[in-house]
C-alpha cells in the first residue's frame, strides 16, 4: 500500500474517531478497564503459582528427626528404599539459617534457642509415590515426623485453579462486553459514513480499502485502552509489591521489568485483536448490503 494511501486512510480513521468523541473515549476506557482486570487476574495466577512452588519443591519429603536420633542410621534406612533418589541432611543450625533467609528475618539473632529439629530432605525418583514413601518413612526409628507439602500445596493449587476459572469467566464476560462496546462505537462511524462507503465502492474501492479506516479505528481504541491498562496495572503492581515487601516480606512475588514488557506487549496485542475483530464485524454487514 502506497504511503499516501496509508496517510489518507489514517486521516479517515482519525476523522471517524473524532466524529463521536464521547463514545471513542468510552470505548477506550472500557477496553482499558477490561484488559486491566484480565492483567490483574494473570498476575495473581502467576504469583499464586510462585507461592505454590515456593512451598514445596516437587517430590521432596521433609523428615524431621527426634533429638536423640542417629542421623546416619536414619539416612542409611532412607537410602535403602529404592524409591528414594537422594537424601540431604540439614542440621538444625542450617535449618534456622534457611528459614531466616526465606522470611528475610535475622532469626539467629532474634531467638535465644533454636526450635528447629535436624532434618533430612528426601528427593524421590517418582514424585507421585510421595504419599506412600512418606508413610513408610514415618515408621523409621528416630523419625519424629515426615511431611510433604501436601495440605498447603493442595490448598494453593486449589486456590490457583479457582483463580484461573474466575479470571477466565470474568475475562470472557469482559471480552464480550468490550467487543460489543467497540462494535457499537465503530458501527456509529460506519453508519455515519455509509454514503461514503457507498461512494467508495462505486468509484472502485476494494472491500479491504473500505474496511481499513474502520479496522484502524477499532485498533486505535484497542491499543489506547491497552496502554491505559498497562500503565494502571504497572503502577498498582509496584504499589502492592512495595506494600508486600514492607508488611509481608516472607511472601515471594513475581517481579522484574521483563514481566511488564511481556505484559504490555500482550495487552497491546490483545487490544489490537479486540479492536480489529469487532470493527470487522461491524463493517461486514454494510459491505454485504452494498
Amino acid at each position: 500500500m502506497a504511503l499516501e494511501t496509508l496517510g489518507f486512510l489514517s486521516q479517515e480513521t482519525w476523522t471517524g474517531a473524532k466524529r463521536h468523541p464521547l463514545m471513542s473515549i468510552a470505548s477506550t476506557v472500557n477496553v482499558g478497564v477490561s484488559l486491566a482486570i484480565l492483567a490483574v487476574g494473570a498476575l495473581a495466577i502467576l504469583n499464586v503459582n510462585r507461592v505454590a512452588d515456593h512451598l514445596l519443591e516437587k517430590g521432596q519429603i521433609g523428615v524431621f528427626l527426634k533429638d536423640d536420633a542417629d542421623a546416619r542410621a536414619v539416612e542409611s534406612r532412607l537410602l535403602a528404599d529404592e524409591r528414594v533418589e537422594t537424601s540431604e541432611f540439614v542440621p538444625k543450625s542450617e535449618g534456622l539459617r534457611r528459614m531466616g533467609e526465606m522470611y528475610r528475618l535475622p532469626l539467629e539473632g532474634l531467638l535465644t534457642r533454636n526450635p528447629i529439629p535436624d532434618k533430612m530432605v528426601v528427593t524421590l525418583r517418582r514424585p507421585e509415590q510421595i504419599a506412600d514413601v512418606t508413610r513408610a518413612i514415618q515408621g523409621i526409628p528416630g523419625v519424629e515426623k515426615a511431611i510433604y507439602g501436601s495440605v498447603a500445596q493442595d490448598r494453593v493449587v486449589a486456590a490457583n485453579k479457582a483463580l484461573k476459572w474466575a479470571t477466565i469467566i470474568v475475562g470472557v464476560l469482559l471480552v464480550a462486553g468490550t467487543f460489543l462496546i467497540i462494535q457499537s462505537t465503530v458501527r456509529l462511524t460506519v453508519h455515519a459514513r455509509r454514503h461514503e462507503i457507498r461512494i467508495m465502492q462505486l468509484v472502485g474501492a476494494t472491500n479491504w480499502f473500505v474496511r481499513v479506516p474502520f479496522v484502524l479505528e477499532g485498533v486505535l481504541y484497542g491499543v489506547s485502552g491497552a496502554a491505559l491498562a498497562a500503565l494502571a496495572v504497572q503502577i498498582a503492581y509496584f504499589w502492592v509489591q512495595d506494600y508486600v515487601q514492607r508488611h509481608l516480606s516472607f511472601m515471594p512475588m513475581v517481579h522484574g521489568s521483563g514481566l511488564f514488557v511481556v505484559m504490555t506487549l500482550a495487552l497491546i496485542a490483545a487490544g489490537c485483536a479486540f479492536g480489529a475483530a469487532s470493527s470487522l464485524i461491524s463493517i461486514q454487514r454494510y459491505l454485504r448490503e452494498a
Binding site: 499516501e4 472502485g204 480499502f209
Partner: peptide, 10 residues
C-alpha cells in the same frame, strides 16, 4: 476521492 481509492500519487 476517486483518486485516493486508486492510490494515485499526490
Amino acid at each position: 476521492f476517486t483518486l485516493e481509492v486508486l492510490g494515485t500519487s499526490r
